[in-house]
């Protein structure tokens, strides 16, 4: 019998090799894939988030854990799809028009993938109409907007306005983040949430998907 607590430890310690090996073993033994995700992997990512908040973990540990989670999920996802299980949510993410900074956006994308979301990453310098198009085509329920510069923050509002003009604003929740962005600004431009860091972004995406 495979020791599933090793899967929890592997994700928590960012050990992708072990995470994948244990997952393969579990699948061979016909363990319920939902059980792997919900009982071991998601709780491990929650603990990663807690350690990040407590400053025991920093960005490198987050990325390693997300990578381990992703390796394991790639094996599990086809089984979930075969069972008709949906991802935690579908997220369209990008850095807004005029802004080429993507480190923070990439980090949030990795953590969302690790959190079981299907992530459509549009890259950086993304025009409002591209966000609209991707959200429509992929039937996304969440749109995440990133900006590192105060001078590009107004493009977040332009993007939210474009979602509204396209008639899909009520179908998606909009999350915003980036160094100069504040909760007040998020409120001002009509976003549904502001994430101070990548782990908060995942928590918010989960809450909003559950609504």
């Amino acid at each position: 019998m495979v020791d599933l607590s090793k899967l929890y430890d592997a994700v928590l310690n960012g050990d992708a090799k072990t995470a994948v090996a244990v997952t393969k073993e579990a699948i061979a033994e016909n363990v319920d894939p939902m059980e792997l995700v919900n009982k071991y992997m998601v709780p491990a990512m929650d603990e990663v988030g807690r350690r990040f908040e407590c400053e025991e973990y920093f960005v490198p540990e987050l990325l390693l854990a997300a990578r381990a989670m992703k390796g394991s999920l790639e094996l599990i996802r086809p089984l979930l799809v075969a069972k008709g299980a949906e991802p935690a949510g579908r997220v369209v993410i990008g850095t807004v028009k005029g802004d080429l900074h993507d480190i923070g956006k990439n980090l949030v994308a990795s953590m969302l993938e690790g959190g079981g979301f299907e992530v459509i990453d549009l890259g950086s310098d993304v025009a409002p109409e591209k966000f609209v198009q991707a959200a429509q085509e992929k039937n996304a329920n969440i749109v995440c907007l990133s900006a590192l510069l105060t001078v590009t923050m107004p493009a977040m509002k332009t993007t939210i306005d474009a979602l509204a003009s396209a008639g899909i604003r009520d179908r998606v929740k909009v999350l915003v983040g980036g160094a100069p962005v504040t909760p007040q600004y998020a409120k001002e431009i009509g976003a549904d949430g502001y994430g101070e860091n990548a782990t908060v972004a995942v928590q918010l995406a989960r809450q909003l998907s559950a609504q």
Binding site: E55, Y57, F58, V59, P60, E61, A179
Partner: peptide
């Protein structure tokens, strides 16, 4: 140095 509770770490810790 702008990360962590006391803002005394780099982004990578």
């Amino acid at each position: 140095f702008d990360s962590g509770r006391n803002k005394d770490r780099t982004m990578m810790g």
